[in-house]
Simulated scan of single mutants.
Amino acid sequence: MKTVIITGASTGIGAGAARHLAAKGWRVFAGVRKHADGEMLKLKSSGVLCPIILDVTKPDQVAAAVETVSEALGGERLAGLVNNAGIAKMGPLAIQPMEDFRAHFEVNVFGLLAMTQACVPLLGADPARNGLPGRIVNITSVGGRLSSPFLGAYAATKHAVEAMTDSLRRELVIYGIDAIAIGPGSVKTPIWDKAEADNTEGPYASSDWGESLKQFEQVMLSGGRSGLAPEEIAGYIETALAADKPKARYAPVPDKLTNWTIPTRLPKRLLDKIFWKRFGLK
């Protein structure tokens, strides 16, 4: 039985991936921040799913979680680490509080790297362990390649994770450990509902961007509620973990031609104008 750790598994992509992989015969250690979330996840799952308390910004929880998995593995290697934990807070960069900006990096970047460093010995760097080297799958975003207004902090972290994934893949080859990025488009996940709750009566409503931000929120919420199901992303995660020759990056994006292919090829100045028009930025 192959073993995988998934961070940020309470809801959304992480929960969908945990349920999917457990049903496919993987032993899944699902990182959650509350015991109640772990129990709910188990109730909705089949197969071997083991919730573990894991806030990736807390070194003691990272160490304890990795020790738990290490003991469960015995002398075997970890087959996969899925770095999914992440946050998103909308806001104009010009006035977004620095603590909010830093919080994105604490979770989406520093937490991801802390978890990765802790798991590298289990994945293949420890020569005393048996089995094939494991893989790291980092959940990035369309925002890892395309920066929209009002998600500058989130996009900055996802750009960083894209770069880190490439560097990890090129460095960890000495252990046979692969690193793969999955950059979804709109997904049915509570992350945008949480972002809306932060901004509905937030500090930006009366700012110079107030009306444009409202338009942006509605677009993001609409996309989040009509986007891909987390289970679809879970299928890409399984492919990244198990395929004989996985791609270095997967881009599961709804309406891919208009939401990914064309925007990534347009000149930046033209894309600026599209954003300005769409969100009433003059």
Rank of each mutant, 00 (worst) to 15 (best):
G224I: 14
L271S: 05
F275I: 03
A15I: 01
G134C: 11
P267M: 14
K44C: 15
N84F: 10
R102I: 14
R102C: 04
V107K: 02
A72V: 03
G16I: 06
G124F: 08
G8K: 04
H104N: 07
S46E: 14
L132F: 05
E106R: 13
A22K: 03
K245T: 14
F275M: 15
L78S: 07
A118S: 06
G131F: 06
V66N: 06
M1Y: 02
N108Q: 11
E171W: 09
E162Q: 08
V62Y: 09
W209F: 15
F101K: 03
A248N: 09
V32S: 11
N108F: 11
F150M: 01
Y204G: 01
T68N: 12
P254N: 10
W260R: 13
I274N: 13
L146T: 08
F110A: 10
Y154E: 08
F110M: 09
H35W: 02
I6P: 04
T11E: 11
E232F: 05
K2M: 13
A114W: 09
T165D: 05
M164G: 04
A79K: 06
V66D: 10
L168E: 07
P121W: 03
S10N: 07
T189F: 08
V253S: 01
N259C: 05
L172T: 02
A88S: 12
T7W: 07
F150A: 04
S147W: 00
A160F: 11
W192K: 14
V28P: 00
T140D: 05
L93T: 05
T7V: 04
S147I: 03
P230G: 04
A72W: 06
G12H: 05
S70H: 12
L113M: 15
P121Q: 07
G12V: 12
G183M: 06
L281S: 01
F216S: 05
G235Q: 11
E162V: 09
L54N: 03
A88W: 04
E196Y: 15
K247A: 08
L112P: 11
W209Q: 11
K34Q: 13
V187C: 03
G202L: 02
R265T: 09
I136T: 14
L168M: 15
F279H: 04
T157W: 06
T264L: 14
A72Q: 10
M90E: 05
A251W: 05
I191C: 03
A153R: 05
A23L: 10
K58I: 14
S222L: 09
A125L: 08
V137G: 03
Q215N: 15
E231H: 08
S207V: 03
V173F: 14
P203A: 13
I52D: 04
G74D: 08
A103W: 06
A160L: 07
G223N: 01
G185F: 14
A79F: 13
K89T: 14
L113P: 07
M164P: 01
I139V: 10
G131D: 12
R269S: 14
L151H: 05
V62T: 13
T189L: 02
V28W: 00
N130P: 00
R102F: 00
G144N: 06
S222P: 08
Y204M: 01
G235S: 13
I5E: 06
K2Y: 02
V137L: 01
R265W: 12
